[in-house]
């Protein structure tokens, strides 16, 4: 299992590197410190985070309640790594979760996850 995860991350890494190689010049690795609006856009995009399908949070216009309301994130998740882990693969924390494994299943890339976490910390 851990081996598999490492492999997935490794592959993910290779993909990212490849994409970086192929893509344009500068790839921003640490989104930390991006404007929350960038993360909000990714989070609300239905083809990306689609977080509003399940969560209610500031700025949402639908009353979803599959997951808990997202608020007060700094106080509840002081460790950034915890939020990254939830977005990477919530199934590791809760094997029966319905929340998609955004990172592990390549729904969001590294940078998008970092951007979303920046946005979450503005909630």
């Amino acid at each position: 299992m851990t081996k598999a995860v490492t492999r997935a991350i490794f592959h993910g890494g290779i993909a990212a590197v490849l994409l970086a190689l192929l893509g344009t010049a500068s790839v921003q690795v640490f989104a930390q410190g991006t404007a929350p609006s960038a993360g909000q856009a990714v989070a609300f995009d239905r083809t990306k985070g689609n977080c509003l399908a399940c969560h209610t949070m500031r700025g949402s216009d639908v009353p979803s309640n599959v997951g808990p309301e997202l608020n007060d994130m700094k106080a509840r998740f002081p460790d950034r790594a915890d939020l990254i882990a939830i977005l990477q693969n919530e199934e590791a924390r809760n094997p029966q979760t319905i929340m998609p494994s955004f990172g592990r299943n390549l729904i969001l890339d590294h940078q998008e996850i970092e951007q979303i976490v920046d946005f979450l910390y503005s909630l």
Partner: peptide, 10 residues
């Protein structure tokens, strides 16, 4: 792996 990745990308 993560470190290598960051290095490569930076």
């Amino acid at each position: 792996v993560a470190l290598a990745f960051m290095l490569l990308c930076s």
